[in-house]
Amino acid sequence: MKRIVVFGRGKVAPTKESKPQDYKSLFMHEAETTARSGKTAYISKEHHERIIKIVQVIGKNEVSLFSYIHNVLEHHFATYKGDITDLYEKNIGQIF
């Protein structure tokens, strides 16, 4: 498995109410935070190779691996915030 660095907060991705953006403008820009302020996470070799190709070709090597992954995760969390919150709250059991 390959190691990647991911961090918590940063630029918020557009919500469903926002003007739709194309893939390149959503994900192919540098994050406002640096990778060194993040944490380490592991991904499969296959995903790492695929992400590297996406960044190299679509991002024309102008976007870091860290920024691409950060942007994808920010978009995911913005898109599924409600679902994640609901599921999280349903899984917090009451002790009594």
Rank of each mutant, 00 (worst) to 15 (best):
K39R: 14
K2I: 00
E89C: 01
H29G: 08
Q94C: 10
Q21C: 02
Y80G: 00
H70I: 08
G82M: 01
Y42Q: 09
L65G: 02
S37N: 10
A78S: 13
L65K: 02
Q56V: 02
L26W: 03
A35V: 13
I52N: 01
P20G: 00
D86F: 06
D86T: 08
K81S: 03
I43M: 06
I4E: 06
M28H: 12
E62D: 10
F27N: 13
K45N: 07
T34Q: 14
I84R: 06
T40N: 14
I69Y: 07
R50S: 10
K2M: 07
I51C: 04
E49K: 11
H75E: 04
S37W: 11
V5I: 15
T79C: 01
N61L: 05
H47L: 06
I69K: 06
G10C: 09
I43S: 06
K24W: 03
F7I: 14
F7Q: 13
Y42C: 10
Y80F: 14
T40I: 13
F66N: 11
E74F: 06
K19E: 02
E30T: 12
S67Q: 13
T33G: 12
H48D: 04
K60N: 14
K60M: 14
F77L: 13
I54A: 04
K53Q: 06
L87A: 01
E32V: 14
V63W: 00
G10E: 11
K39A: 10
A35K: 13
F96C: 05
I43V: 15
K53D: 10
Y80S: 00
G59T: 10
H76V: 12
M1K: 02
F66I: 07
